[in-house]
Design a protein around this nucleic acid. Structure first.
Lengths: 240, 240
DNA sequence: TATGTAACCAATCCATGATTGGTCAAGCCT
DNA sequence: AGGCTTGACCAATCATGGATTGGTTACATA
């Protein structure tokens, strides 16, 4: 009963012919990023069918991925031209490192667990381990943060969930921007200890072993370790 | 000749005193994300100086980095707040409910735990409970999702972390947008069972009790419950 | 059964007026 | 003269209400 698409009658077929011709004409001037079709009411009048009939034809085209519709905006040609943006409020940008760290602690363990649910083949494991190892060779704080960001984004990418990836990217964008303000990245000192390296390795192992709980715990431990280092470096920040 | 900042006269000094006091008062009620000062005309009248004098004092404060001004928007306390935006990729917008659910499972338990770290006074607890209760009185799917979103965003707001709040807002924006495509919200059925209500209550209790682990567990259980309902409601989706 | 007509809803766009910081000119007051 | 006020105007932004648009339902029509 679901496939009522074909059994629609001659009126919608006629509408489809008109619409396909219209789309082909618009597609000729290709790559027009926002080719918008006339409003349904006008289009129905122009073609010579009623709006429900037109809408049934448009539904077919939408199912085929040829058009895309949105309330209040209109009907557009093309596969998908939906740009949505999120404005980062000032409060997030001026967040102190402790808040960024708290956000990471809230998100990233669950992220690692999600990645562990997918698993890791040998090549991917080597890749991830290599990326994680770069945090050890960092010469200063900024390099460390770049490498660390890459590692955590790699974990997010592994989860295979675009929503999670978006959240991770947003988080690390804020982290980078918020750190900019303080600009402590160039001078202080690279985290020369072995903690991060071993911790990253443990995270990789847990993901490879498809053990979400272990991945969660390993990520939590890692962030706690980084967080404690942050706190030490943050304590004498009276001047700025 | 360039440093005419100090040689400004007693009026601007008086204005500076008032403004510094005002800023200190606003900084006391910290974490106000967009602490905006009154308009220059009002502020001048309130302090008792003319607008040019006030503006000279504001200029000093801006040079010191204490405030930030923009035409048409107002004068704001805190460091400069440039507008940064994150574009949501199409992949995230076309995510299926399971992926959105997985993202929620990754983020929101940690979020609840963070909120539990802050705690809850009596009024805040009542507020949160009231918001959570609305999910039970929802008459259809859309109302339920709106109420549920409000509840979870309230939890995020409670964490007092603008970064976490940004992540939660992004997540629920994607959730709303991704659900749009399917647009099953109006008709099907309200979740009349008691699970959500009791689960929300348990989350509130855990946060109020400052028990991060319990909050984490309660949120996980809640999302699992919602997720299972999603899956059930998604399987026989032929009729819609 | 397929189609047409009509009406309504919710989301979005859009034009208009109000508000805000930025600027300038002139007058007032020690 | 120098500091201050007053007043007015500009350009950017916000806020508001009406118009537009896709989504939906109910009923009539053939």
């Amino acid at each position: 009963m679901a496939d009522a698409a074909e059994a629609s009658g001659p009126a919608v077929e006629a509408a489809l012919l008109h619409l396909r011709a219209l789309l082909a004409r618009q597609a000729a001037g290709r790559d027009a990023p926002a080719t918008r079709l006339p409003a349904e009411r006008d289009l129905a009048a122009a073609i010579g069918v009623s709006r429900p009939t037109l809408r049934r034809a448009l539904q077919v085209l939408e199912d085929e991925g040829l058009i895309w519709r949105h309330v209040g905006r209109g009907t557009f040609a093309g596969p998908r031209a939906d740009r949505v943006e999120v404005a980062i409020p000032a409060a997030a940008l001026s967040a102190d490192p402790a808040q960024v760290m708290a956000a990471r602690r809230a998100l990233e363990p669950g992220l690692a667990a999600a990645a562990a649910g997918i698993g890791l083949d040998t090549a991917a494991r080597a890749d991830l381990a290599a990326i994680g190892a770069r945090t050890r060779t960092a010469q200063n704080w900024r390099e460390y943060e770049v490498a660390d960001t890459e590692f955590h984004l790699a974990v997010a990418r592994l989860a295979g969930n675009p929503v999670l990836l978006l959240l991770a990217e947003t988080l690390h964008l804020v982290r980078r921007t918020a750190t900019w303000t303080r600009a402590r990245g160039n001078a202080p000192a690279p985290p020369q200890d072995h903690h991060s390296f071993a911790e990253h390795d443990r995270i990789v192992a847990a993901i490879a072993a498809r053990d979400p709980d272990a991945a969660h715990a390993a990520m939590t431990a890692h962030l706690d370790s980084v967080g404690s280092r942050f706190r030490v470096a943050d304590a004498p920040s009276d001047g700025v």
